[in-house]
Deep mutational scan, measured.
Amino acid sequence: NRLGIIYEIQGMKAVVLTSEGEFLIIRRRKDMKVGQQVSFENEDIYNV
């Protein structure tokens, strides 16, 4: 599992900021809110 803070939500995608200072786009889940810490898997990351 990886951890990140939700920075922005766009439709079915969420932008998270990881503890390494990396911004990633992941698959959104219904319970996500901006500012929330979430765990996610590598499979949830969109390749940009």
Rank of each mutant, 00 (worst) to 15 (best):
N1W: 08
N1V: 14
N1Q: 10
N1I: 15
N1R: 04
N1T: 11
R2I: 07
R2M: 12
L3R: 09
L3I: 10
L3P: 03
G4P: 02
G4T: 01
G4V: 03
I5R: 10
I5G: 01
I5D: 02
I5K: 07
I5F: 12
I6L: 04
I6N: 00
I6V: 15
I6Q: 00
I6S: 00
Y7N: 06
Y7I: 15
Y7W: 15
Y7P: 00
E8V: 08
E8F: 06
I9R: 01
I9F: 15
I9H: 01
Q10E: 15
Q10C: 12
G11T: 05
G11E: 12
G11R: 07
M12L: 04
M12E: 15
M12G: 13
K13H: 15
K13F: 11
K13D: 04
K13W: 13
K13Q: 06
A14H: 01
A14N: 01
A14S: 04
A14L: 06
A14G: 01
V15S: 08
V15H: 10
V15R: 07
V15Q: 03
V15C: 12
V15I: 10
V15A: 04
V16N: 00
V16A: 02
V16G: 00
L17V: 12
L17G: 03
L17P: 00
L17R: 11
L17D: 00
L17N: 02
L17Q: 09
T18N: 02
T18G: 04
T18V: 06
S19E: 10
S19G: 04
S19V: 05
S19A: 11
E20R: 08
E20T: 14
E20L: 09
E20P: 02
E20H: 14
E20W: 02
G21N: 07
G21S: 07
G21C: 12
G21A: 02
G21M: 03
E22S: 09
E22V: 12
E22D: 07
E22W: 10
F23T: 09
F23L: 10
F23H: 11
F23I: 11
L24A: 09
L24R: 04
I25G: 04
I25L: 14
I25M: 08
I25E: 06
I25K: 05
I26H: 00
I26D: 00
I26V: 05
R27I: 15
R28I: 14
R28Y: 15
R28H: 15
R28F: 15
R28P: 07
R28Q: 08
R28A: 07
R29G: 10
R29N: 12
R29V: 05
K30H: 15
K30I: 12
K30E: 15
K30R: 10
K30C: 15
K30M: 14
K30V: 15
D31I: 03
D31C: 13
M32L: 03
K33I: 14
K33F: 09
K33C: 11
V34L: 13
V34A: 05
V34M: 10
V34E: 07
V34C: 14
V34R: 04
G35S: 03
G35W: 04
G35E: 02
Q36F: 12
Q36D: 10
Q36M: 14
Q37C: 07
Q37F: 09
Q37A: 11
Q37T: 09
Q37I: 10
Q37V: 14
V38M: 04
V38P: 00
V38C: 09
S39T: 14
S39L: 06
S39C: 15
F40E: 02
F40G: 01
E41A: 13
E41F: 11
E41C: 14
E41M: 13
E41I: 13
E41G: 13
N42S: 14
N42A: 12
N42R: 10
N42H: 10
N42V: 13
E43G: 05
E43V: 04
D44A: 03
D44K: 03
D44I: 04
D44M: 03
I45W: 06
I45T: 02
I45K: 04
Y46S: 05
Y46P: 02
Y46V: 09
Y46M: 11
N47F: 06
N47Y: 08
V48N: 15
V48M: 08
